[in-house]
Amino acid sequence: MSPADPLTQDFELGFTYTRSTGPVVGRFLTGLRERRIEGVRASDGRVIVPPMEYDPDTAAALEDFVEVGQEGELVSWCWVSEPRAAHPFERPFAWGMIRLDGADVPMVHCIAADSEQDLVTGARVRASWVDEPRGHISDIRCFELVEGGAS
C-alpha cells in the first residue's frame, strides 16, 4: 500500500433519545390533534405562535394561552424548486413565514402553490389539515393560498 492510499472505514454513529415537551409546547401539540392552533401571550401583549415557555424579554413563565386563526398572511418565503426526499412535497413548494390572524409573530410552515409567481407578501393562506391529526406539527399538512385573498 502506498502512502497515497490510506485506510478508510465507513463509520456511522447513532443514538435514540426521548423528549418531554413540557406544559407549554405540549399543550400546543395537543391542540393540533384537535385541529386547534394556540399561541401564548407574552409580557408585552404580543401573541406568540408556536408558544414559548418563557418570555424572551422578562424570562417570566408564560401561560396565558390564546387560540389564533387558521388563516393568516404570508410574510416571506423561500421557494423550493427541486424538492428532495426529506421535503414534505414531491412537487415544488415554498417554506413560508405565516402570521396567523390573532398572532403577532410569524411561524414557519410549508406553502402549497402552483408557482412562485402566485406568492406575494401579504397573500392570504389557510391551514390544510391531515385526515388523522396525532399531535405533531405536520398535522398541518401545509398552508394553501386563499382564492382572491391577496391583500
Partner: peptide, 12 residues
C-alpha cells in the same frame, strides 16, 4: 424521570 417538564423547565 421528569416527564412533566421540558429540559428548559427542569433547569428553570
Amino acid at each position: 424521570k421528569r416527564g412533566d417538564v421540558s429540559i428548559a423547565g427542569l433547569l428553570r
